[in-house]
Amino acid sequence: MKRRTLLSSGAALAAALTLPTTTAAAAAAQAEQEEPVRFQLPAPNGPYPVGTVALHLVDTARPDPWVPSRPCRELMISVWYPARGGVARPVAPWMPPAAADRYLSLLGLPPGRVRLGDTHGREGAPVGGPPGPLPVVLYSPGADASRSFGTGVAEDLAGHGFVVVTVDHTYDAAVVAFPGGRVETNPAGGMDDYGKALAVRTADVRFVLDRLAVLRAGGRPGVGRTPLPVGLRGALDLGRVGMLGHSLGGAATAATMLADGRITAGASLDGGAAGPVVAAGLDRPFLVVDTLGKGGMASTPALRTFWSHLRGWRLHLTVRGAAHQSFGDDALILPLLAPLLGMSPTDLADEVGTIPAQRAQAFQRAYPRAFFDLHLRGRGRLLDGPSPDFPEVDYAR
């Protein structure tokens, strides 16, 4: 279930991190003369502009489970929503600059060699879109990943009238930037205690839901002075809540649904299943998306057992040609970074598969939205059966 992140991609990366100082200096000097590699998400295609706001949450009732010296559990979330058109606001960066700098330095990439670009979300823009309140979707990324890697799917859902909340699980994520420029990294250099991580993520998401309820009731959900977008409180329909996750985030979706009945429907993108939910199953809608490799039903006995115990609406989709990192923004970023990380074509295919990046992106824009449209809005037919528009997608009930 472990997400093989950019931090561990390519055998050449480990060697690069131990280059002699003179070689590293020469590489940095050469990089300064080269055109930066630029990543920019494709524009979302929904009918509404997208707004976003980042919030700092503090759970004072819970010491941090990964760093016991911290008396409180701190999280960063981003809220994405349909915005009012015609409002001039700056767009949010794909990853906060302090986090991006630290992340790229952990990869061994020289400063300025990679530009991670911006999102399409206008920071703090007033809420617009369809009449509210709107269904809410929570997003949990893979192990060692940042909430930034779910930006593409978050923007798409927001542009089609959902409120999406992406969550950084601090110290599980590779990097998390807090207000004031503080950046926290995984102190162990990589998370590998999945049982503990699932319990922590479950508690994180339940706390986020509690803070959204405070927001909906008119209170302030986070700390600091971040102004809330006009109309956000009235936009949240906490009676229609879904959850989506990639890899470990998919397993966390299932585990959190077992623990918290507030989540109406869940979807897992190449994630496994672990803990009590494997035997207990769920009585609410659940979508399993997998590949023929790492996270697939065929190679994961616990996922097959979990599937057999699903008692509500269920659907199993396999995306042929995809690999574990075909879901999320990795599918677009990794091909750009592969030459810099010394990844061979075979290494890259192991990560993102052979499916064209635009097809992976098309899947991510169509199928999660179709699932939440069906189960949070009661509309849509894409999930009824195989679609000629997506011949690479296999269906199983």
Rank of each mutant, 00 (worst) to 15 (best):
R211Q: 03
R211H: 03
R211M: 04
R211A: 02
R211G: 05
L212H: 15
L212A: 11
L212P: 08
L212Y: 15
A213Q: 07
V214R: 01
V214Y: 00
V214I: 13
L215Y: 04
L215W: 02
R216M: 00
R216A: 00
R216V: 00
R216P: 03
R216N: 01
A217S: 14
G218P: 13
R220K: 13
P221A: 08
P221M: 08
G222W: 10
G222P: 11
G222N: 01
G222T: 04
G222K: 01
V223H: 08
V223M: 03
V223R: 01
V223E: 08
G224I: 03
G224L: 01
G224T: 02
G224A: 01
R225E: 14
R225C: 14
R225G: 10
R225K: 10
T226R: 01
P227V: 03
P227M: 03
P227C: 02
P227Y: 01
P227A: 05
L228M: 14
L228P: 12
L228I: 13
P229L: 00
P229W: 00
V230C: 01
V230K: 07
G231I: 03
G231L: 08
L232G: 00
L232C: 03
R233W: 02
R233K: 05
R233T: 04
G234L: 03
A235T: 04
A235C: 12
A235F: 11
L236A: 06
D237S: 06
D237Q: 01
D237V: 03
L238R: 01
G239K: 11
G239H: 12
G239R: 04
R240W: 06
G242E: 07
G242W: 15
G242Q: 07
M243C: 06
M243T: 10
M243Y: 15
L244Q: 07
H246C: 05
H246M: 05
H246G: 06
H246S: 06
H246N: 00
S247E: 13
L248T: 12
L248P: 15
L248S: 12
G249E: 07
G249A: 02
G249N: 06
G250M: 12
A251E: 14
A251C: 08
A252D: 05
A252W: 00
A252K: 02
T253G: 14
T253Y: 04
T253E: 03
A254N: 05
A254L: 08
A255N: 10
A255V: 06
T256S: 15
T256E: 14
T256Y: 14
M257F: 07
M257K: 09
L258Y: 15
L258E: 13
L258S: 11
A259F: 03
D260P: 08
G261S: 11
R262N: 06
R262T: 00
R262P: 09
R262M: 07
I263M: 10
I263H: 12
I263C: 13
I263G: 12
I263Y: 02
